[in-house]
Design a protein around this nucleic acid. Structure first.
Lengths: 161, 161
DNA sequence: GTTGAAATACAGACGCG
DNA sequence: CGCGTCTGTATTTCAAC
């Protein structure tokens, strides 16, 4: 159907993207399969690389990380070496949750999580500006996370809400 | 220490943000506590809202969702009612993984996952442009996901790499 | 898909600081 | 008296059939 996935596989993936703590038996009820069957499918989906990993999502505010910012960057040097170096530097920074190489006015888009605005200012000055030569930087502060998900809709068009 | 979290709590949170499938016993080894203690802490951390939920992360390419795009939007109407309506519309769209209300040149930033560029074009025309009056739209296609994480560094400064 | 054994999660009673 | 360990029981995982 899709890379060797049948309808049941797709249903299972949709479910565990939203709640990875359900038991195989609970998932089995939803997909009308035995728990052993669900177990075997989950193992296969993981072994074949469909499932990358399982993670816990935290409440950022509760752990005192109240500022999310989007940092758009344009490098001065676009050689392969410079790009690689930039990627390496970014990977070391715990404040950076995501780094995307994008088309458009800027080269990279960083999703940054810090304690407060002061911490963000320090992050820019002491870390980003120091790492590589930058042609331009544009920051957007996140006022509100209207939608915050990790689940991708699978199967042909759209699937579940 | 931080909202009532001690050093052990923080270590546990750091661990399960990266691997939520470890057994309580395995976590216990890392934090030098018994499995029962780890179990009790996990339950408390969840009940108190530090842990929002557990999810599985999929390989987007394997499920044929090869295009990630960032859609920046500026609305024409900024009334509270219009904002609320926009948020409601966006929440219905499975292609939109994240929607952030941001400062800067645009009002909202959408992280969109679709099958291909054609699907993105349809998403814009049939869905986004139809939902609310827009003053401007700017799309950035993601060429490469240099870093892709969900784990926030807890504790004062930085913690683990 | 069913069954059974091993691992795991989880609640209660006790003990230490 | 909060917190951790220990023990027993209920679930769950997982491999063999």
């Amino acid at each position: 159907m899709l890379n060797g996935l049948d309808e049941t596989d797709i249903q299972i993936l949709e479910i565990i993207q939203r709640n990875a703590r359900l038991s195989n038996a609970q998932i089995g009820v939803s997909v009308s399969k035995s728990q052993a069957s669900v177990n075997a499918r989950l193992k296969r989906l993981h072994d074949e690389g469909f499932i990358l990993r399982y993670v816990a999502l935290l409440d950022h505010a509760k752990v005192e990380r109240n500022v999310m910012a989007i940092t758009n960057l344009k490098l001065t040097d676009h050689s392969r070496k410079a790009l690689k170096h930039f990627e390496n530097e970014v990977n070391k920074l715990p404040e950076v949750l995501e780094c995307l190489h994008v088309t458009g006015d800027y080269d990279f888009m960083l999703k940054v999580i810090v304690k407060d605005i002061a911490a963000y200012q320090q992050f820019l000055e002491n870390t980003v500006f120091e790492s590589v030569p930058l042609a331009s930087v544009q920051s957007s502060i996140v006022l509100k996370q209207t939608k915050m998900g990790t689940a991708v809709a699978i199967s042909g068009g759209k699937t579940i809400a």
